[in-house]
Design a protein around this nucleic acid. Sequence first.
DNA 1: CTGGATCCTAGAGGATACTG
DNA 2: CAGTATCCTCTAGGATCCAG
Lengths: 125, 125
Amino acid sequence: MRKERAELGDLKFKQSVELTLKVIGGKWKPVILCHLTDGTMRFGELKREMPSITQKMLTQQLRELEQDGIIHRQIYHQVPPKVEYSLTEYGITVKELLDVMSAWGERHRERFPSDEAEHAPSEGG
Amino acid sequence: MRKERAELGDLKFKQSVELTLKVIGGKWKPVILCHLTDGTMRFGELKREMPSITQKMLTQQLRELEQDGIIHRQIYHQVPPKVEYSLTEYGITVKELLDVMSAWGERHRERFPSDEAEHAPSEGG
DNA sequence: CTGGATCCTAGAGGATACTG
DNA sequence: CAGTATCCTCTAGGATCCAG
């Protein structure tokens, strides 16, 4: 009983993969999510951890993640402003995803150590 | 013994995630890989399954996947030309990744059925 | 401190023509 | 059939300034 090129099932499969990449993919979202898996963080904190991101991008990506229900935005109406970001209960489910991705990436690095060279010179925390 | 914001471990973690996205991310690679998990496919076959991709992109993406050791390119020197693509033994490890991504994407679609609307009108096999 | 608005660049991705 | 080459578009991402 091998699967016989189920067209429909396959279509849904790949569409789901694409959807996932659309939601948590891109240049910054995965990094942001990695940081938020550690717990709640303020805007400035995130910015500090990612020196090479611009405020615009950070804000933009956070908004999108918020709209997708991945993260929660807690605003403190005070001066100076204070905004905290954290994973929602639903957002926590991405941890599993990040774990698998990270694990695969590490294995890949073992095979192609050169690949990390062109990638390493980014932010270092 | 909770993890205490291990900077270095965290750095490697997020870099691995980024690396993964660099290797199998993008607009087309995941889709291509989804198809190849079904087995060997010819260039034209892939093209047919992905009507909205251009030859250029398909060729380009396949080359990159080949260079990353994910897929194998079998050339038959004949007329007309015949080239077959398949996952390498190493490439098969992405199945696990795709599975997790697909599963997450499906769950996400349940939460945000609207998200599929802006994504559905692509190729339909 | 957080982040909106504006303008700009680079590169991913696309259309088309041509070739062994 | 599979692929290269060229030129073009579009948008993700960036720099900078301004504001509550």
